[in-house]
């Protein structure tokens, strides 16, 4: 088992290295001459060249990548000339607020989706299943921000229960203390995630219900509840672990849209603003981090599966 995880870890490192190459390559292709971007169109070519030389932007590409990699290893993600701030500090300002939003919505989504999926599988092709499936299908076919628009229309503009804008508090504590303002963005994220997870859980549970060991559990005389909690749950959650590990990109995309829609100052909004400013160091650093997080998510899921599944653990 340890050997397996070690090999998975090495593979993950290889992938991370690949991601850094892609991020670097894109940075290089899109803004190969940062001097021009920083100094503006009116700067003399000489000044641009001097700037590029001073910052090592005229070295051979491999050397530049090597420097880039070394900087990364030292935790230096580059410098945002637009904001006049190191990228790390820009990220640092926003990371906790985003973490709160994503974390709360992910946990809520899992807690809702698992029982919902099992319920659907057990009541397969009954009314409840149809209703949930239709709802999930509609949500799934909807751009995530559109649900947000509907929520704003209903709860903020028509009913006026919740504000249309998320908490603007600078500190996370402030955000946590303002659940009313966070209700709609969190509800929005939870709803889209539940739509995906519950359908996956449904098919996983359906798969489980068709297994011979469920029949044997029933043949022992166990009640439906005991069969579901004692035999079905653990086995059908196993594939969910992998799915959740794979969901980092979707989570980040969700953040980007929802934070933009609700004007919530997190990493997503930061990314949106950087897009408007064409602030490539921030954009690509964030992309790099997103890639690393995705790899990490997969790896953590693998570890979790290894712990949860005796077939993997003991082989």
């Amino acid at each position: 088992m340890a050997g397996y995880l070690f090999r998975r870890f090495v593979t993950s490192l290889v992938v991370v290295l690949g991601i850094s190459m892609v991020a670097f390559a894109m940075l290089h292709l899109i803004s190969s001459s940062p001097g021009r971007a920083v100094l503006g169109l009116h700067a003399s070519p000489k000044a641009v060249a001097a700037f590029n030389k001073a910052n090592g932007y005229d070295d051979p590409i491999v050397i530049q990548y090597w420097h880039y990699l070394l900087q990364l290893l030292h935790g230096n993600l580059g410098y945002s000339y637009k904001l006049n701030q190191p990228v790390t500090s820009v990220l640092g300002e926003n990371v906790l607020r985003s973490l709160y939003l994503s974390g709360v919505s992910l946990v809520l989504a899992i807690l809702i989706a698992i029982p919902l999926g099992i319920y659907q599988a057990v009541r397969r092709n009954h009314l409840g299943d149809y209703i949930v499936t239709s709802g999930a299908f509609t949500l799934y076919s909807m751009p995530s921000f559109f649900l947000g628009l509907l929520l704003i229309q209903a709860f903020a503009l028509s009913l006026k229960i919740f504000p249309p804008e998320a908490s603007q508090s600078v500190s996370v504590i402030g955000v946590i203390e303002d659940p009313r303002a966070m209700f709609l963005p969190i509800l929005n994220l939870v709803a889209i995630q539940v739509a995906g997870y519950s359908q996956y859980m449904r098919s996983s549970a359906l798969d489980g219900l068709g297994q011979d060991y469920i029949r044997l559990a029933r043949a022992k005389g166990l009640s439906q509840k005991a069969v579901l909690t004692g035999h079905l749950l653990r086995n059908s959650i196993l594939p969910m672990i992998t799915l959740i590990g794979l969901s980092v990109p979707a989570l980040l995309a969700g953040n980007l849209l929802i934070e933009t829609l609700f004007n919530y100052p997190g990493l997503g909004l930061m990314f949106y603003n950087a897009l408007q400013n064409e602030d490539y160091p921030i954009l690509l650093s964030y992309t790099l981090i997103a890639g690393v997080l995705t790899v990490a998510g997969n790896f953590i899921a693998d570890v979790a599966i290894t712990i949860a599944d005796p077939r993997v653990r003991l082989s």
Binding site: T11, V14, V15, G18, I19, M21, V22, A23, M26, I30, V248, P249, A250, L252, A253, L256, F271, L275, E278, Y280, L283, L284, Y286, T287, A290, G291, T294, V295, N298
Partner: peptide, 22 residues
């Protein structure tokens, strides 16, 4: 397949948006 792993690890929307700015 490792190349696929690498590109798949980079969130689709982010990379598409970055390219779209250009």
């Amino acid at each position: 397949m490792r190349i696929v792993d690498v590109i798949l690890s980079i969130p689709y929307l982010l990379i598409v948006l970055i390219v779209a700015t250009r």
